[in-house]
């Protein structure tokens, strides 16, 4: 294994998470329940895709793939996003819950990377954190309001959370080179991040009259939805990518 392999693995996982979730969020453009949320979610979608670009740029000297090649040419089996981000957008409750759970994970991930021994990661994390903090403000606000809204809004949010929570645990699936990343001080490891993430989401969810399956010490119950980090994806990723990559592949290498 080359010395940069662990860093590549981490960067691909983060870049692909952002790209695929950004694509799923963008599917609301023109379809969100109200105009203002349509624009807000389109904005979040563009931000996430922009964040993937930052990670793909860092990958370019390590893999030789340009960001366009990484996003538009790579086959699904080479993607390392978690399964969670690739699922269809569902109803708006599912989208809000997924984006909220992802935004909280981004907070712990980027806050940790802001302390990384790798300078490029530190700088990128510092650049992304303010935008991610705004996403979180927005989605947390929606979770709190919809959770405490009407019986229907609470019911839909809880139903979405029941589906999304085990999927979201897949964000913290270990990387094969995780031990090395931890030893080198590049990244504190997904187990630590998941613990911090759960500490953050529990009070927010209970304040919104919503609940997730965890035991008394905050350990998740039930099966996490793993596989994405080793390329064992669901058919939904293929579906999302065939949409995402269609235009590029209709005229590969075209200059716009």
């Amino acid at each position: 294994m080359s010395s940069s392999a662990p860093l590549i693995e981490l960067l691909i996982a983060m870049a692909d998470d952002e790209l695929v979730l950004g694509h799923r969020d963008a599917e609301w453009t023109g379809h969100a329940p109200i105009l203002e949320e349509d624009i807000a979610f389109s904005n979040i979608a563009q931000d996430e895709i922009g964040h993937s670009l930052i990670w793909y740029h860092l990958l370019e000297p390590l893999t030789g793939l340009t960001p366009d090649q990484a996003a538009f040419v790579r086959p699904a089996k080479d993607f390392r996003c978690c399964r969670f981000v690739a699922y269809p957008k569902g109803d708006f409750a599912y989208t809000v819950v997924r984006q909220y759970l992802f935004d909280e994970a981004e907070q712990v991930r980027l806050t940790a990377l802001a302390e990384s021994t790798n300078e490029q990661l530190r700088q990128a994390a510092a650049k992304l954190l303010p935008e991610e903090t705004y996403h979180l403000l927005h989605t947390k606000g929606l979770v709190e309001r919809l959770g405490r809204g009407t019986d229907e809004s609470r019911g839909r949010m809880q139903a979405a959370l029941d589906i999304a929570f085990p999927q979201a645990l897949g964000m913290f699936e270990s990387l094969s080179s995780e031990d090395q990343l931890i030893r080198l001080g590049i990244f504190p490891g997904h187990r630590a991040l998941q613990r911090q993430w759960i500490e953050r989401i529990l009070p927010v969810l209970s304040g919104a009259s919503l609940s997730v399956g965890v035991d008394g010490s905050g350990r998740p119950l039930g099966q996490p939805d793993l596989g994405g980090r080793i390329g064992a994806h669901t058919p939904y990723l293929l579906e999302a990518l065939s949409d995402l990559q269609r235009v590029y592949n209709s005229e590969p290498g075209a200059i716009w």
């Binding site: 109200i34 105009l35 203002e36 949320e37 624009i39 807000a40 904005n43 705004y134 403000l137 927005h138 606000g141 309001r145």
Partner: peptide, 17 residues
């Protein structure tokens, strides 16, 4: 103008618009 359920959300949505 924006549609919003409360002042904080109004500010957030105004930011986006």
């Amino acid at each position: 103008s924006v549609h919003a359920p409360d002042p904080q959300m109004a500010l957030q949505l105004a930011r986006d618009q």
